[in-house]
Design a binder for these strands. Structure first.
Lengths: 337, 337
DNA sequence: TGTTAGCACTTGGGCATGTTGAGTGCTAAC
DNA sequence: GTTAGCACTCAACATGCCCAAGTGCTAACA
């Protein structure tokens, strides 16, 4: 049997199944795709495909559906990333115009991606560990409460409240701010643990307590911005695409809510030379996602942060991959300047 | 027939139905609750309740289930808000300890509430319109991009990027910052439209363009913090509580994602003298929530912001109301000082 | 007047049974 | 290597039947 036809048959099965959501049989296959052979031949091919674990029959006399392995082969060797339609390109263009606040941009991006793909879209905040301190600000809220603001040169702002052991004054804060800023402005966020203690040590004894508290607060902010976050959109698509289909969406929602899980998942996805990485069904390290696939890619400087979508294994991979890739590229471009 | 018993029967029906998820019949009712009368009598009562539109029978020979109106009566006149269990109180206490960053607190609160109630929890950011300007900061990102930071005395920080028409320098920004701060520090966020233009007008002509852009940016930030937002948690509970039950969760997820809808809904809920407001099924202004109920209450200064939960109409109102009320009180207390 | 027992009636759910059609694997011929 | 043909399997659907749960009603009762 010819190797090319075998792949062709697998391709046809995947496409039909994604489209119809129903097991596809040999006869329907020859009708819908002009394969040039009879259904009996296809049956033989299918038997082989099943032996190789690429497809399975849910019950004796039903059609076949692709396995995770089948999808994998499809994605790796068969499908081509389709170019986006003109309408889609336009949507990307227009939706990503507007104020270029990092937060705003990510929010709109993720919404856009979820609409393009009809899946749940997820985007990770850009990494800040290599970002540098641009500015800090101490603001007295009450005599014992100080709002600490840390501004990175990436434009990200972190804030938190610090409790002082004794009453502080605006003058204290102004002095300390100058001192801190002098020492840490321009230094990398991940170097702060090395720098901060020496700043505190150099303070006048009277201020040392306060300085310690503030240093601790700054450290927390720096940690937090390294500490990753994400934005998502389109959870309602989960319910829609699975009407009358038993992808139990409970576990998936749980995974999405446990941001740690999702972030881990995204980070762990190796970068693929083709631009998008796909993790299918049980390939996912998280149990709740055993019937789901993740399509993701990096964006921004060094492609360090990830953007992607989450959907049922039975999804339209070519189009989804195209959308993810395109959106990631636009996003990189916008954040680039 | 005695009015008290009628209510008692309704109460029993609601409680059994909430518990079992199945229509409850007259016989089962007398068995589970010691009502002191026979099933025949209950049948008569039920017929009356049905006439009044408080309960319905899904089909001829099934038990009855409460209608929206039935739940309404139950909530208004029958149920009592149960006190929380000691364990629950402890959970609230321990989970709400930690750094008292507004954002952090809200996030933990909403997570806690969703766990206590097994529903989706939602909390609205505190209103800031009456907040005052504590501090502003301009940071040069590139010669033509300025990061504008607005810090309110409530501790909330807003940030955004402004594009300059011409190159700006740090000195320009320092000067402008002093000027802006001198005029608007301490003034209410909603008064900024009146104040900002005059500041711009007073600037040196060379800086006026830049000042205008910055003023515009500040205005946007002020608007945004008036512009309401929310945090939510527990969407996975939707899937869980509705396993084998046809509350189509799609529309509900949509509503939750359209934050505008939810915020509107929360804002529109009148304050109830008993401390918690309930909106049941079709009482909700949004179609997708016709099988859902919202239990909410205000918190914080003037109870202006809302916190609440969203779940199926068939929910345990007494406990849910108790949890919402308790959590709101703790939240108020924590934010109060 | 309110309560109760008894009874005829309705009906959804479960079950056993039969039928249909899509789909398969296998074999023999091309 | 491909195909036609055929016997076989089995989910899905339909049909009929019975049962249990539940109802409404009536007549008797306190």
């Amino acid at each position: 049997m010819s190797e090319p036809r075998k792949l062709e048959v697998l391709r046809a099965i995947v496409e039909d199944y994604v489209h119809s959501r129903e097991p596809v049989g040999s006869k329907a296959l020859v009708e819908r795709h002009h394969l040039g052979v009879s259904s009996a031949t296809i049956r033989n091919d299918m038997a082989l495909l099943e032996e190789e674990g690429l497809i399975v029959a849910p019950h004796t006399s039903a059609g076949r559906i692709p396995t995770d392995k089948g999808y994998r082969l499809f994605v790796d060797r068969i499908s081509e990333v389709k170019p986006l339609s003109a309408a889609e390109r336009r949507a990307i263009h227009s939706l990503l115009e507007g104020p270029d606040d990092v937060e705003d941009i990510l929010e709109r991006t993720v919404r856009l991606l979820s609409q393009l793909t009809n899946q749940v879209a997820v985007v990770q905040y850009p990494h800040l560990s290599r970002a540098r301190v641009r500015h800090i600000e101490f603001v007295l809220l009450t005599p014992r409460q100080v709002l600490v603001v840390l501004i990175a040169d990436s434009g990200k702002v972190e804030q938190g409240v610090v409790h002082a052991a004794a009453d502080a004054t605006d003058d204290d804060l102004t002095a300390l701010r100058a001192r801190f800023l002098g020492s840490i402005a321009g230094s990398q966020l991940d170097l702060m643990p090395q720098v901060l203690p020496s700043v505190v040590a150099l303070c006048q004894p009277a201020l040392r307590n306060l300085a310690g508290a503030l240093a601790h607060g700054l450290q927390r902010l720096a940690d937090r911005s390294r500490d990753e976050r994400m934005v998502m959109a389109g959870t309602a698509n989960l319910a829609r695409s699975n009407v009358d289909f038993p992808l139990s969406i409970g576990p998936v929602l749980e995974a999405l809510e446990e941001q740690v899980v999702m972030l881990r998942l995204l980070s762990d996805m190796a970068e693929d030379p083709r631009g998008v990485t796909v993790s299918i069904g049980r390939e996912n390290p998280y149990d709740g996602l055993s019937e789901a696939s993740v399509v993701a890619t990096g964006y921004g400087p060094g492609s360090s942060a990830k953007i992607g979508i989450l959907g049922p294994t039975r999804m339209d991979y070519p189009n989804t991959m195209a959308a993810v890739r395109a959106v990631a590229r636009y996003l990189s471009r916008i954040l680039g300047d």
